[in-house]
Design a protein around this nucleic acid. Structure first.
Lengths: 148, 148
DNA sequence: ATATAACTTAGAGTATACGCTAACTCAAAC
DNA sequence: GTTTGAGTTAGCGTATACTCTAAGTTATAT
């Protein structure tokens, strides 16, 4: 039994608007229609939508995803091309995670800095250098507003 | 010696358009002007722009960053509020990294799958389940198109 | 002194990814 | 058989974040 667009929306968390939009954008040429024109999604289709969600979640644009889908529709002739797309995206995600980790390091430093600042009652009493995150954060007792 | 907007653009990698746009959006109320109205960025300003870039890079919207900037301009009275914003963003980034890692796992699987498919010459010869990524990927020798 | 490069603002234009409405059709329940 | 809920398309509207142009001013180098 195929799924209706509403059922797919519930299953995937995407809105029906989004699903139709994706379809219009050429991301779902594999979805068959009932005699009256309604979309009928199979379980295999759902897997593919999961993949689309994955690619989208890693920053791939809909236009690029469309290209991938078109390759996939062409069958085995495009296997290596598709493999390369996945390898490329793999590297992209690794780089993204690295970048996010750098940002997280900065945030970690900020939390330590602001924790000290809150304790001292003022930012001016706190020393520390954001670009040297391992450097200790020190409170200048002379400048404290709040006493411990 | 203060920096001009062009120099800041080079240093930060943001375009002058973007810097002015950020300014207009209230993200840089701390930037002073020369008598003739030109922006004069200090090194401290550059650090703050780095922070803005960090927050933006972790998915914070400009409108939210603006709120943070406004709090920062109010001084020590908003220290705990700002600390909480950083803590919140810290958690958000951790969650993002986790999600990205999940997507990466899926991509890793796809690379393994497609590598096998390329070797076999056809997708149909390859078995494997994306939701059980530890399951081995097996090539059905009967369905091979390309012989090893 | 003047060319040119860089700055200024206001505001229009672009890209992406939706979200929503209107007007209509269709399927299932009662 | 008719209501109700869900589906359909076309197309307009929105949000975000730029990106660029136009028209003018200012700073710097020759």
């Amino acid at each position: 039994m195929p799924y209706s667009i509403g059922q797919v929306a519930k299953k995937t968390g995407l809105s029906t608007y989004t699903l139709r939009y994706y379809d219009r954008k050429g991301l779902m040429p594999f979805v068959k229609r009932s005699p009256s024109g309604r979309r009928e999604f199979t379980d295999k289709n759902l897997d593919f939508i999961d993949l689309i969600t994955c690619l989208k979640g890693t920053g791939m644009q809909l236009s690029e995803i469309r290209k991938f889908v078109e390759l996939a529709m062409q069958g085995d002739a495009t296997l290596t091309t598709r493999l390369n797309i996945f390898k490329q995206q793999q590297e992209a995600v690794k780089a993204q995670i690295k970048q996010s980790q750098k940002f997280l390091d900065k945030l970690d430093y900020k939390v330590r800095f602001y924790t000290a600042a809150c304790e001292a009652g003022t930012e001016t009493a706190v020393s520390g250098n954001c670009d040297l995150p391992d450097q200790p954060i020190v409170i200048n007792e002379q400048l404290r507003v709040k006493r411990a």
